[in-house]
Design a protein around this nucleic acid. Structure first.
Lengths: 106, 106
DNA sequence: TCGGCGTATCGTAATATTGCAATGTAGCAA
DNA sequence: TTGCTACATTGCAATATTACGATACGCCGA
């Protein structure tokens, strides 16, 4: 992708963009929604929900984890994933900030 | 990217993922924040803010527009961009839905 | 200890994204 | 008309993402 240009932006924008990018894929959105709705918790269930292969789901889980949106705890042979309230709080705040305070110039 | 697999997901997840993906880049986040803060409105100002070339900024604006997050109105020689409240509302609702209703299984 | 189950990781192929220079298009002033 | 300003599009090249099969790893039960 050309040159990554990451040095031109504020750390806040970079961190926040990571969060948004992690949610910017329907499979990951489905995973996160399933966790939020308490419909699923472990990798095998996400495979059934998304219809993707286990390897792909595991990769998506890894991305969500590295973005800080979820964190997994190994419970015996399974790994249980749950949401990170702090990341969701950040997202919520930033979206709230975007709400147009008044009507803009156009 | 492998095969796109878009048929496996719900339309809501697909549409929402488009919104999140559009915000999942620091340059686009900076643009949207600048509009929200009423610091900038036209392409030339975004070029100054992001430090990217005019062509690249125009491309990012196009993506934000096609995602429905902003819409531009041509005003003489300039094009003024502003946020779409409906898209922001969608984002806000979906983020609110993700907030953990209670503590989960792990 | 040996399988088997559930996940994670590796390697690889197909495709998407990012960025910029060059060029095109549209409005306005002289 | 001519030239200028502001923006959009096109055409690459470099890089990132997505997906999957194959395989490795870790934890149990027999």
């Amino acid at each position: 992708m050309g040159t990554s240009h990451t040095e031109s932006f504020t750390p806040e924008h970079l961190a926040l963009a990571e969060l948004f990018k992690a949610l910017g894929h329907p499979a990951r959105l489905a995973i996160v929604n399933a966790i939020a709705a308490q419909q699923a918790c472990v990798c095998g269930e996400f495979v059934a929900i998304t219809g993707l292969s286990q390897a792909t789901v595991s990769q998506h889980l890894k991305e969500l984890k590295s973005a800080g949106i979820i964190h997994g705890s190994i419970q015996g042979p399974k790994t249980c994933y749950c949401l990170s309230p702090s990341a969701l709080g950040l997202l919520k705040d930033s979206v709230a900030q975007l709400q147009t305070p008044s009507d803009s110039c156009c």
